[in-house]
């Protein structure tokens, strides 16, 4: 299939499915209550799916002289800040600052 066509198929299908997920209990199933087992399973979607998505991004190490991947350390710092503050901005600030600092360190020592 033509790549542009394929992309638009993905955009429209994923867009529609996302919209239906968003609309689900607001409109489509407004009169039904959620089955208890589904409610229980859905609680774990963000933790499971988002962890699976971000971990490879954190572990992907660009060529570096550092013994430990600085991204892992920076992500741990960001995780602690996020856990304590619930703030995207502070998490981002702490994580990026930690990464820049750790990336600069080996250069200054070596």
């Amino acid at each position: 299939m033509d790549a542009t066509l394929k992309l638009w198929f993905v955009i429209l299908t994923v867009g529609l499915l996302n919209y239906l997920s968003r609309l689900s209990f607001i409109a489509v199933f407004a009169r039904t209550s959620m089955p208890p087992l589904l409610a229980r399973a859905l609680k774990y979607v963000p933790a499971a799916m988002l962890t699976a998505l971000i971990l490879p991004m954190i572990l992907a190490a660009p060529a570096s002289a550092a013994p430990l991947n600085p991204r892992v350390a920076a992500a741990i710092v960001a995780g602690i800040v996020a856990f304590c503050t619930h703030s995207t901005l502070k998490t981002l600030g702490a994580g990026m600052a930690a990464l820049w600092l750790l990336q600069a360190l080996p250069a200054s020592i070596g």
Partner: peptide, 26 residues
Amino acid sequence: SLEFAVPLCFVALVAPLLRDAPTVLA
């Protein structure tokens, strides 16, 4: 390393959820 901002945005969403054992296990 701006691409690192993407996992960080998701860390901001996920880390506060990790308050009970089943979520941590997931």
